[in-house]
């Protein structure tokens, strides 16, 4: 293993590296915060647009009181049922009965005549 002198010197941190650290973290935080604001507002905007569309069509608008609130468990149960249905994992029999004939070739190793129990009877 090649030896290396391990330094521990705080003066190695120059201004540029501090700028990188502070600016870098702030930019990441700002970018993701901007996404948070945008997507929080987007949902409200889509809701308003959907209401307007329904109003234009003359249908009843769906206000918050009519909103269907479902828990995660209910969602999961519906999703599982749909998944099983579309994956055709539910039981479905063919209703055709067949008897599969299995042919075995004769071998003295599985012969009843030469079976070990027959031999034991004579003992």
């Amino acid at each position: 293993m090649k030896m290396m002198s391990i330094t521990f010197d705080f003066t190695l941190i120059d201004n540029y590296s501090i700028i990188i650290t502070v600016a870098g973290f702030c930019i990441v935080l700002a970018t993701l915060s901007l996404s948070v604001c945008f997507f929080t507002q987007l949902h409200s905007l889509l809701d308003i647009m959907a209401k307007r569309k329904l109003k234009k069509q003359g249908s009843a608008t769906h206000d918050d009181t009519q909103k269907v609130v479902m828990t995660g468990e209910e969602n999961a149960a519906i999703a599982t049922a749909l998944y099983l249905f579309f994956s055709e994992l539910h039981d479905e029999e063919k209703y055709v009965m067949t008897i599969r004939k299995v042919s075995r070739t004769y071998s003295p190793w599985n012969s009843k005549i030469y079976g070990i129990w027959n031999t034991m009877k004579h003992w």
């Binding site: 391990i6 330094t7 521990f8 705080f10 941190i13 590296s17 990188i20 650290t21 973290f25």
Partner: peptide
């Protein structure tokens, strides 16, 4: 990540 960036610089 950013804290370790400075930490690694301290170690040369």
């Amino acid at each position: 990540i950013f804290a370790t960036f400075l930490g690694a610089m301290v170690f040369g």
